[in-house]
Amino acid sequence: MRIQVLRLPLVELAGIHEEPFALIADQFDGAPESQQTLMAFAEQAGARALWMTGETVEIVETPEPAVLETLAADDDHFGI
Results as ranks from 00 to 15, higher is better:
13 L>N: 07
77 H>I: 14
72 A>M: 07
6 L>N: 01
5 V>E: 09
57 V>D: 05
58 E>M: 03
31 A>H: 13
28 F>Q: 04
65 P>R: 05
20 P>Y: 02
14 A>Y: 10
46 G>W: 02
49 A>F: 03
3 I>C: 08
46 G>L: 01
46 G>N: 06
5 V>H: 04
61 E>Q: 12
29 D>R: 11
39 M>I: 10
59 I>H: 02
51 W>Y: 15
70 T>N: 05
26 D>L: 14
24 I>F: 04
52 M>E: 05
51 W>F: 15
52 M>R: 05
36 Q>I: 13
22 A>G: 13
45 A>W: 09
5 V>K: 15
12 E>H: 02
24 I>A: 09
72 A>K: 13
69 E>A: 14
77 H>G: 07
57 V>L: 14
2 R>M: 10
19 E>V: 04
71 L>G: 12
14 A>H: 08
19 E>H: 12
13 L>Y: 04
37 T>M: 13
11 V>N: 07
1 M>L: 03
54 G>K: 04
11 V>F: 04
24 I>H: 06
62 T>G: 02
71 L>A: 06
34 S>I: 00
74 D>K: 10
34 S>N: 11
23 L>S: 08
5 V>G: 00
66 A>L: 14
38 L>A: 09
10 L>H: 03
51 W>Q: 11
77 H>Y: 13
66 A>G: 01
52 M>Q: 14
56 T>E: 12
39 M>D: 09
